[in-house]
């Protein structure tokens, strides 16, 4: 308890000192190969010099949430910093059986109506695919990144990262990326505000969002 108080104080103090360093606003727009603006793309900036990063996501921060609402994962994609803890509440009045076989984090969790599950820590960076063993159309993603500077693009395909000046690798991820766009990075030097466009080499895979149009009138 005492230790955590000290840790919190250190974070607080260091963030006070950091205020002057967050000089830059990096605005990124993501389009596909046909210049269409792409929402819901994870964009993150990894500093080349990792020592310039503030502390890793505080293990005390349990604020990340992957909920179950109307037999769907909400949000569909959750981005967290590596080592974060994620809560799995269940807003449905039925049982869910959430699982992942992904190398970055493999687990299973039985979520009962009104029950409380312990949060899960995502120690490794990478993609975690979530399913439900009862409702086989449910699909969700937790994407864990090794940087505190990340966000998802809005409906206009845009995202803004507040980060200190420095050299970065700008990366992006979506479960719908085709092979030509996987594991790509853009080298970037940030000095003051900056605009950047990411254009994919290909289109996205179809989202099959109609899987979300489920209703109560089904027996499975």
């Amino acid at each position: 308890m005492k230790k955590s108080f000290i840790a919190q104080s250190v974070i607080l103090v260091s963030s006070l000192f950091n205020i002057g360093v967050y000089a830059a606003e990096l605005s990124v727009t993501v389009t596909d190969s046909k210049n269409r603006l792409l929402p819901n793309i994870v964009v993150y900036a990894e500093p080349l010099d990792k020592s310039s990063m503030p502390n890793e996501a505080a293990p005390l921060d349990h604020s990340a949430v992957m909920d179950q609402i109307h037999k769907q994962f909400v949000p569909h994609i959750l981005v967290v910093q590596k080592s974060s803890w994620v809560n799995f509440p269940n807003s449905d009045s039925i049982k869910h059986h959430v699982y992942s076989f992904s190398p970055a984090k493999s687990f299973e969790l039985r979520l009962y109506d009104g029950g409380k599950a312990k949060p899960i820590q995502f120690e490794k960076a990478g993609e975690v695919v979530l399913g439900c063993n009862i409702h086989d159309w449910m699909l969700g993603y937790i994407y864990s990144v090794d940087t505190p500077w990340f966000a998802k693009t809005n409906k206009q395909g845009a995202v803004t990262l507040d980060l200190p000046d420095g050299d970065y690798q700008l990366k992006y991820w979506s479960p719908l990326l085709q092979n030509a766009d996987k594991d790509k990075a853009i080298q970037l030097t940030v000095k003051g505000d900056k605009q950047q466009t990411i254009q994919l080499n290909d289109e996205l895979l179809p989202a099959l969002a109609d899987y979300e149009n489920n209703d109560e009138l089904t027996d499975y």
Binding site: D136, W137, L205, P206, L208, D210, Y211
Partner: peptide, 13 residues
């Protein structure tokens, strides 16, 4: 036995 389409990026299950 079920083949859930969503896990295979397919609209068919």
């Amino acid at each position: 036995v079920t083949r859930s389409g969503r896990q295979y990026h397919s609209p068919h299950s």
